[in-house]
């Protein structure tokens, strides 16, 4: 066991994957805070599921597993799904949850259909394509880590630069309009960052569970602080820890999928926070009573 650990840590590829999971976890934790506060958790779940047909379609089209190509497809179908959801809410009597449910399940089902088409009818090296469902850290190579790392850093940088704008538009829409913040642009930017995080996350965490990496750390962070600034940092840290532990454990133990391990780690952090969080954890509340 211990020798396995040492050989693993010495492998240069694994070090890269660790850095990737760390950055991904941190950036999704940070963006997740805004997702949570703006009540967009379920729509991000829909967006994540909707990336699957995009990935499969690009693979059929170009017969190429290069990550940027697949991720472009993921972005397109994810955006398509979002606009469909908004169209349904606007034009029919169906409510948000039904609209999300319809689009999520149909896009995902179609993605599965395309994946099965790839497996049945296409030759060549297709291994790793269905790892997008649950994520597989082992399928990640150095070049993919560059993509994940650069996008994560960009997301973090933009969040730091526009933190004030994000803050005001999240909490007080009219006020931010009043002080001259271009609300439409800021919302658009934040939405793009959300799409970016989801899309780079699907390879490691998988489309089914990536939403957990957005909401669970931020929900956990909520139990430790009332300030949004601190919340983003705590949430990012929780995300990074989850990414790291999930990746390491799934690499050491055979057959263990990466995504669910990352999510399980985040869930454990959430339950610890729910019980012992210093702001509104259950224990603190009991004691205060």
């Amino acid at each position: 066991m211990i020798t396995e650990w040492i050989t693993l840590l010495e492998s240069p590829n694994f070090r890269w994957v660790m850095i990737g999971s760390l950055l991904l976890g941190f950036s999704s934790g940070v963006i997740g805070c805004f997702v949570y506060l703006r009540k967009q958790s379920l729509i991000s779940d829909g967006m994540a599921h909707a990336t699957l047909p995009g990935v499969a379609f690009m693979y059929i089209l170009f017969q190429n597993k290069s990550l940027p190509v697949l991720l472009i497809g993921a972005t397109v179908t994810s955006l398509l799904a979002t606009s469909f959801i908004q169209m349904i809410i606007k034009q029919t009597k169906l409510k948000t949850d039904a609209a999300i449910g319809v689009i999520l399940s149909v896009f995902f089902g179609f993605g599965i259909l395309l994946l099965s088409y790839i497996q049945q009818n296409m030759s060549g090296n297709q291994a790793g394509i269905d790892s997008f469902i649950f994520g597989q850290a082992a399928s990640i190579v150095k070049n993919d880590v560059y993509t994940i790392g650069v996008v994560s850093l960009l997301v973090l940088l933009l969040t730091v630069i526009f933190f004030r704008e994000f803050y005001y538009t999240t909490f007080d829409f009219t006020f931010s309009k009043g002080i001259g913040i271009p609300v439409k642009w800021v919302n658009g930017l934040l939405f793009s960052l959300l799409v970016a995080v989801i899309v780079i996350g699907i390879q490691m965490v998988g489309v089914v569970l990536i939403v957990a990496l957005l909401i669970t750390p931020s929900l956990a962070a909520r139990y430790w602080t009332d300030s949004l600034g601190k919340m983003t940092v705590i949430s990012g840290t929780f995300g990074a820890i989850s990414g790291l532990i999930g990746t390491i454990s799934s690499s050491v133990i055979q057959n263990l999928p990466t995504g669910p391990m990352i999510v399980l780690t985040a869930s454990v952090l959430f339950f610890i926070s729910l019980l012992f969080g210093s702001k509104r954890g259950m224990v603190v509340r009991r004691l205060a009573r």
């Binding site: 009540k39 957990a212 929900l219």
Partner: peptide, 20 residues
């Protein structure tokens, strides 16, 4: 906790546990 976040956190946790 807003209900959408509550749904999200519960089902991902239990589902991840099931898969593992």
């Amino acid at each position: 906790i807003p209900s959408d976040a509550a749904i999200g956190v519960v089902f991902t946790s239990l589902f991840a546990l099931g898969v593992v």
